[in-house]
Simulated assay, not measured.
Amino acid sequence: MLNIPFIHALSDVQTRDIGAGTRIWQFVVILDGARIGENCNICSHCLIEGDVFVGNDVTVKSGVQLWNGVVLEDGVFIGPNVTFTNDRHPRSGNRSFALSRTVVERGASIGGGATLLPGIRIGAGAMVGAGSVVTKDVPPGMTVAGNPARELRTPA
């Protein structure tokens, strides 16, 4: 394990709250206030806003934006081009929107290209299939897929 994070020279990292062993690749922007845990892998072309928490051992693949209010607990996997949202009624220039927090609990996996509506909670160990549109909470251990995402497999 590295004692310090690796931050690629072609990234723009404004926070200092990054754990040991974390790797941040090129063309990543991380705003001041974001908290990134240990041994994470933040792949190229990602944006992380300031009111975001990323736990330990998290993988965020390329093309992901983590908007204010997103929480990724330990051991989470976020596939490429997953879309998070934080505003239930978006309008251009609306700075008074009500922030909706999205939480992905420990060990959950979100497949590439999935979209999560604001205020969703993905339970521990749950899996969201690639390309799914998640409109409501996913219980721990459940696998969902589709548009809208529906249960494929009940937790064991």
Rank of each mutant, 00 (worst) to 15 (best):
L117P: 01
S132M: 04
T15S: 05
L66I: 11
V128Y: 13
G113D: 09
T115I: 15
I120K: 05
G125Y: 10
H45L: 13
K136D: 12
G79N: 10
D137Q: 01
V71W: 07
I78F: 06
I122Y: 09
I36T: 12
L31R: 14
D57R: 14
R35K: 15
G63H: 12
V70S: 11
S100C: 13
S44D: 05
L99H: 08
P139Q: 10
R91F: 05
I42T: 09
Q65G: 14
S109N: 12
R91M: 13
V54T: 12
I120L: 08
N81G: 01
A130K: 07
P140N: 10
T15Q: 02
E105L: 01
C46E: 04
I78G: 08
S100W: 04
R106V: 08
E49M: 09
K61P: 00
L72K: 11
G112R: 02
S96G: 01
V28F: 01
D32Y: 00
T115N: 01
V138H: 08
T135Y: 00
A34K: 03
V82H: 04
R106E: 15
F77K: 06
V133G: 02
L66Y: 10
N81T: 14
I18M: 07
L31A: 13
R16I: 04
D137R: 00
R95W: 12
R35T: 15
P140C: 10
G107L: 03
F77V: 14
D32R: 14
V103D: 05
D51T: 09
F97A: 09
H45E: 12
L116E: 09
D137P: 03
S44H: 12
I18E: 05
V58I: 11
K61L: 13
G19C: 04
G93D: 09
V82A: 05
I48R: 02
G19A: 04
D57C: 11
F53W: 12
I122A: 07
V134K: 02
I36G: 03
V134F: 02
G69W: 08
A145M: 10
A124F: 04
G69S: 10
N94S: 09
A124P: 02
N94E: 14
S100H: 14
R91L: 13
R35E: 13
P118F: 06
A108V: 11
G111W: 06
S62K: 02
V70C: 11
K61E: 14
D17W: 00
I78Y: 06
L66G: 13
V52M: 09
G107D: 10
L99D: 11
A130F: 05
L99R: 02
D87C: 08
V52T: 14
W25H: 11
G69I: 10
F77S: 12
V58Q: 04
V71L: 04
A98N: 08
I120W: 04
L99T: 10
V28W: 00
V134Q: 02
K61D: 07
F97Y: 15
I48T: 12
Q14T: 04
S132F: 06
N81A: 15
G19L: 02
Q65L: 10
G119H: 10
I36L: 06
E38S: 15
S96M: 03
V29C: 10
V103I: 15
I122R: 03
S96I: 02
A126F: 11
Q26C: 06
L31N: 13
T15W: 04
T135I: 15
R23V: 11
D87A: 07
G37C: 06
E49C: 07
R101W: 06
V60Y: 05
R88S: 15
D87G: 06
V28T: 10
L72F: 14
I110H: 03
A124R: 15
